[in-house]
């Protein structure tokens, strides 16, 4: 008879309910492990078992953060768990955010250890890594095989109250916690060693990494909107029907630029979405729901804005690495600078 009760949180996909068309499903629970839970349970000690799984659609969670958190926490609490494991979410943004939010809420309210797993660039990782343990995983479910043992190891430590080692030793994302330890070598000697390595051009591990503040200064406001040229950019994958540039539905390798001169309205016959990370039905019916060309043209006619820039840019923001997003935005930005636009509306799904 297992003594340590573990609950597992999953989204609709890993919970084996369905894909994006099921992403608005409300939370519910099942007894025992589901999907990756089976392998996860094997990675735990024999006296630990997954007694229940709580499943919630990613879209439902992200559109109803407060209520969804309440509902999920209540379902988890009903199992009277000793430990919560969420995910892993890899690089799925909405799933990562849900895993982080659920873990943080359970840790605070049920006062039990929690952990999840994510790719470092998952926006959920940045948001929650200081509050909870997030095991570093690869960026896609193809890396499930390495993620599960790593999460299992840390889960055992947390459940049994064992000492948790440093982020590098245990494979979780640094939480910014400093611990006092006795080192066999004094600080000055270690500093000189590091300095010598640096001078020789060798690699070394700093003991105090500087935080990265990646912020940009807000640019001054547009003074006269009625004279301004406004550009539309989207990560929601809106493309001319047939997706002429074949922008991929996830991990897009490119962006597209599309001429909308003389187009006053995006219709089901002319535009669609290439995005594979949300239910495409609504955008395919009317792409203005993601890229508001109809409204912008109306505002242009009424003289509220000077003009809508006749080229719009689109990519698919789904599992896209930060480096690629930055690269595409840089290239798009160079073109928009040339075009002398005065402001940009970026829409995301």
């Amino acid at each position: 008879m297992a003594s340590i009760r573990v609950v597992h949180y999953l989204n609709q996909f890993f919970g084996q309910i369905g894909g994006e068309e099921k992403a608005d499903i409300t939370p519910f629970s099942k007894d025992g492990p589901v999907g990756p839970g089976t392998a996860l349970e094997k990675a735990l000690d024999d006296d630990m078992s997954i007694i229940g799984t709580v499943i919630c659609g990613d879209t439902y969670f992200n559109e109803n953060i407060d209520t969804a958190t309440e509902e999920v926490v209540a379902l988890i609490a009903s199992f009277k768990p000793d430990l919560l494991i969420a995910g892993p979410a890899f690089n799925a943004g909405r799933y990562g955010f849900a895993c982080g939010a659920v873990c943080a809420a359970v840790q605070e309210r049920l006062n039990i250890p929690v952990l999840t797993g994510m790719y470092e660039e998952n926006p959920g990782a940045d948001m929650y890594k200081k509050e909870i343990y997030i095991v570093k995983t690869g960026n896609s479910a193809a890396q499930m095989r390495t993620a599960i043992p790593a999460m299992g190891r840390l889960a055992i430590r947390l459940a049994k109250g064992e000492v948790v080692g440093s982020p590098a030793e245990e494979g979780y994302l640094a939480r910014g916690i400093r611990k006092n330890v006795f080192h066999e070598q004094r600080g000055s000697a270690r500093a000189v060693e590091m300095l010598l390595k640096k001078i020789k051009g060798e690699s070394f591990d700093t003991e105090y990494p500087m935080p990265i503040f990646d912020r940009v200064t807000p640019r001054p406001a547009i003074k006269n909107l009625s004279q301004a040229k406004i550009a539309l950019v989207t990560s929601g994958g809106i493309v001319p029907k047939g997706n002429p540039d074949r922008i991929e539905s996830s991990s897009a390798s490119k962006f597209g630029r599309y001429d909308i001169s003389g187009i006053n309205n995006l219709t089901a016959e002319t535009f669609e979405t290439a995005h594979g990370g949300y239910d495409p039905v609504y955008a395919n019916q009317d792409a203005d729901r993601v890229l508001p060309v109809d409204v912008m043209r109306k505002l242009e006619q009424e003289g509220i804005i000077g003009q809508l820039h006749n080229i719009y840019y689109a990519t698919v923001g789904n599992g896209t690495s930060v480096a690629n997003a930055k690269k595409y935005a840089h290239a798009i930005g160079e073109e928009l600078k040339q075009a002398q636009v005065d402001g940009i509306i970026l829409t995301s799904t």
Binding site: D214, R215, V216, P218, R219, P220, A221, I222, V233, A325, K326, A329, H330, I332, G333, E334, L336, K337, V341, D342, G343, I344, I345, L346
Partner: peptide, 11 residues
């Protein structure tokens, strides 16, 4: 962020 930085207009 990159758009705001490169184009130098509000986004």
């Amino acid at each position: 962020k990159e758009l705001e930085e490169v184009v130098d207009v509000p986004v």
